[in-house]
Design a protein around this nucleic acid. Sequence first.
DNA 1: TAGTGGTCTAGACCACTCA
DNA 2: GAGTGGTCTAGACCACTAC
Lengths: 239, 239
Amino acid sequence: MRENIYLQIYNDYSSRIHSGQLPPGAKLPSESELAESYGTSRETVRKALNLLFREGYIHKIKGRGSFVLDMTRMDFPVTGLISFKEMGDTLGGPSRTLVEETVQEPAGSMPARQLQIPEDALIWKVTRAREIEGERIILDKDYFRADIVPFLSRDIAAGSIYEYLEGELGLKISYAKKLISVEPSTEEDHRLLDLKKYTHIVVVRNYVYLENTVLFQYTESRHRLDKFQFVDFARRVRR
Amino acid sequence: MRENIYLQIYNDYSSRIHSGQLPPGAKLPSESELAESYGTSRETVRKALNLLFREGYIHKIKGRGSFVLDMTRMDFPVTGLISFKEMGDTLGGPSRTLVEETVQEPAGSMPARQLQIPEDALIWKVTRAREIEGERIILDKDYFRADIVPFLSRDIAAGSIYEYLEGELGLKISYAKKLISVEPSTEEDHRLLDLKKYTHIVVVRNYVYLENTVLFQYTESRHRLDKFQFVDFARRVRR
DNA sequence: TAGTGGTCTAGACCACTCA
DNA sequence: GAGTGGTCTAGACCACTAC
């Protein structure tokens, strides 16, 4: 199976930029040149360049060309939470996931409200603590609609639930909404995390939707204040 | 001057969705039908629909069509900080901006490091407190390169600096990077804000770049914990 | 099978930048 | 004036959905 041409161009250039082969400020070939060298049309090249643009890899100036942006200080991922794995990498220390609980049960009031399902509908509830450099810093509480995710296990929860959902189950995730706020920490936070003296905790609520617009997962990610970081990259939209 | 066709289509449909004329779940005309009715080509229609898609207005399914997403629970703006003005609206109470300081001075160590300029380079420094329902909740500290923004005043700072930069000065903003974290509150925070008992504060660092990739503004927005909220909407990207 | 969105083509004209 | 990116066209074939 042949990959889409525009994704091929996108992948070629994003990896060249990542590797440093194309340093910040470097000029990309013009759209016509790229079209010629890839044996494709200019519109297809533009599709690839617009992807690179939207993700912050390059920067385009009418009349001049496309140039590599300086992403050295752009802490990857370009946008989003510094993920668990990357936090471990960044801090250099060892990190691991402690699966607290993996159970199937009726939703109950809070998850039912968040997932917009009846309180007696079945859900999978996964509770995990994230330990970095010997300290439990993040508490992840995931809730999945059991009619969509029929089975989960401690093993799956210990690895990447994400890969399981998209790979094994073939679920097609379409979009997600995050809500970030700061709230008083609960008794559970103190029990499952090394919260020190902190009286508050950063709460990241994540609502995940499938391609058919069904909300099937709600996650509450609770971060210790001092270790929380979020990066957002936005292109200016003129209208 | 005629507006781009694809922006026209985008504006037509985004406003119809906002107004509720097109309710959640409604099916848009097919791409061919839209092309016909706007007297344009399908690729142009697709440009408009992809904009609507990226911004979370609609949702496309191959073989079925395009459908309006349910944004009722999507707190506008779809992504980003609940801005000062909107916070006022949401909370219903009166809100105002207190300009603390508007001075031109040498950058000094901190702003110089953030803006990546010499410490003796001139900058404009604007300090503003945001009051909502009688409480000073947000402290905005803006730093502008004075070689790019030659003049600022208390009046401009009291209104929309943003409009001044893009309108009056004609600056072309290209992109911005935000970094969100939680830090211990400073003496200045307590002096300029109604911080109550809170020992920590949410810090949003904003780096604003022009089209020529020059970093010209650095803003530190300091929010009282209990009033902070950030929304992020992301489409799933498959690669 | 008919209809839909996803990709792609091979042109075209425009506005802008730079020498 | 040569080169660049921004917009647009009028087709084409494909993969997927629904009936």
